[in-house]
Design a protein around this nucleic acid. Structure first.
Lengths: 187, 187
DNA sequence: ACCTGAACACCGTTCAAGT
DNA sequence: ACCTGAACACCGTTCAAGT
């Protein structure tokens, strides 16, 4: 199935990009993962920029769906906010991987425009969801919810980055705990 | 002067690495920046790993010196903590660059061991300094100061990363403000 | 539609040779 | 001591051509 090959490329590329970034993506290794030749990938993704944009778009879409699923099944916004860090934690548990949006944020200067746009959209999706939980929970003034949401998103991404650099997930857990103790996140 | 050429290479490599990471460093562009040929860089740094380690070590040393200078001339630990985010802000003002330690933290999987070690030392230097200010200011319990310091360091790095991905320093300023309002940093 | 061989451009590295 | 041209092995990327 052609669709299947495309999906295999996308998921292999996502795994690689979460460990090595956009710059670390390469057609040859990717091809080997999927079981075709590197040139064949270009049939599905004409250029690396196209592949990167597709990976980032899919990543953003999946994140949006996961967040909607979480808030749908968890009516309590405080509980939602308590669970929000779980996704970032799961990436670390997955062979010390990190959020694609964070890695690509670092690589911003070398990102094709379409990829950079998806990275920003990914952040917006997360921030909007966090802001909504903060609003519904009345944790911060309505006009401050988006700003606080951005701070929370940034802080969690930073905690993941620090934990990755030590290959030690406890750095992540302790940072999240500190955010709760300090009052950045609900305890 | 031979020393001068070595310094020119180091500073050019640092500037490049703060925008493109360790992976974005390459001998040919670096040589062009400095005005020599790429093969000549190997006279000073036998391999890319040596160059990367030297860049990261210098970066860590400069950061340590800057922090000591700040706390020497500013006896009040609260004032020190208020000024701590300034260095990260300056990187963003410098053509949207970011902290080398953060970029390399993302690149962790592809870093030579000596470089990864320096990245960890850089984080330790920052965390130790923040923890000392927190302790002296009695802002958190003594046994919690290092954990809180790590959370602060991570949160500030994350704020910088988010601002970089938008090329908009106001994202950074607003995140830092939120950290203060929430109580993560002293107001 | 789907895939590939082969060529191209680039990179880190080495080394003999120049000053 | 400091620097260079040239070469090497390798790899990401592209393209014309195969089925």
């Amino acid at each position: 199935m052609s669709t299947n090959t495309r999906e295999l490329i996308l998921s292999a590329a996502t795994r690689t990009a979460q460990a090595h970034g956009y710059g670390g993506l390469n057609f040859r290794d990717l091809a080997q993962d999927v079981g075709i030749k590197s040139a064949s990938i270009h049939y599905y993704f004409p250029s690396k920029a196209d592949l990167g944009a597709a990976v980032a778009r899919r990543y953003r879409e999946d994140a949006a769906a996961a967040l909607e699923a979480l808030s749908d099944e968890t009516p309590d916004p405080i509980t939602c906010l308590r669970r929000y860090p779980d996704t970032f934690r799961a990436a670390l548990q997955n062979d010390n991987r990190m959020c694609l949006g964070s890695f690509m944020a670092a690589e911003y200067d070398d990102l094709p425009d379409a990829v950079a746009k998806e990275v920003q959209d990914f952040a917006d999706v997360n921030v909007a969801w966090i802001a909504r939980q903060l609003s519904v929970a009345s944790l911060v003034a309505a006009e401050k919810s988006e700003q606080r949401a951005r701070a929370i998103f940034a802080a969690i991404a930073g905690a993941q980055l620090l934990a990755r650099s030590r290959s030690d997930i406890s750095f992540y857990d302790l940072a999240i705990d500190s955010y709760r103790e300090a009052g950045l996140l609900p305890a």
